[in-house]
Amino acid sequence: MTELALVLLGGLNFGAIYALAALGIVLIHKATKTVNFAHGAFVLIGALGAYIVQVQLSWSAWLAYLLVPPAVGALAALIELVLLRPLRRADAFSVVIATVFLGIALSEGVRLIYNAELLTVPSPFQGAPFLIGPVILTREVLWTVAGSLLIGIGTTLAFRRARVARGMRAMAANHRGAQLCGYSVDRTYALAWFLGGALAGVAGVFAAPAKGISPDLPIAVIAAAFVAAVVGGFDSLKGAVAGGLLLGVVETLAAAYGDSALKNAISFMLLFVVMLYRPEGLFPEVKTRHV
């Protein structure tokens, strides 16, 4: 029992970061119908932001949570503005390709500036762990899981209620119709990329203490976040959060009770099974009929 609880906690710890990363991908896709393969690089830049704020500038960790997400969001919006907007008139295919190589360009840029195997950032919580019976719960794990869940759920609710999100939802539902109703495509797209980028930034700040900052981070994050997004139902925000947590737990469970060498393969098996048997995802936003 204790062992299972420990495994679940470990899974949730990483699942929470997957969830945040997946959330940004889904948000951007929902509003702009663009699949952002550069998202992993955004997360890397978010984690690097945490390093700059906490280690290089020696500021408080909380400032990282405050400053980094809007900065990454602004970068994402800028990229949308300068790079992807001209492509919007072309086809979706070119945009996807562009994001793949944009991600590589960004990660390489980071690597060129900080040529190190690993940069580390201390956790904002260093105190003694809580003991729930025999189960150990460190403050860092508690904060990562609870904090990212809060942000994830907050985003989901905000997207449902807030005024700014209405345009995005309208775009998601009916692109042409939204335009006719006076929603500006340009503004909505920029906003979606800003929010998606900001979510990647938060994911990065959370990931920094748990994963460190290394050149492999983008590909590791993007693969997991995509699996989480697909499992959740690609256009469902709550699905992305649930998918991320589920993926984290399934991966860890499978590695603990199966073969640890096959950990990555198992996440892909999950993806495969979901795509084959429930292509609309496990937690679809609205039930749509395939016509």
């Binding site: 979706a92 996807v96 995509f226 892909f268 495969f272 795509m275 084959l276 292509p279």
Partner: peptide, 23 residues
């Protein structure tokens, strides 16, 4: 799988294939 999936989903399937073969 290409019979059923297109776009980014198909890209993901190919990524699955890539990873599984290498593993």
């Amino acid at each position: 799988p290409a019979v059923r999936f297109r776009g980014h989903n198909l890209a993901m399937i190919t990524l699955v294939f890539q990873s599984v073969v290498i593993i």
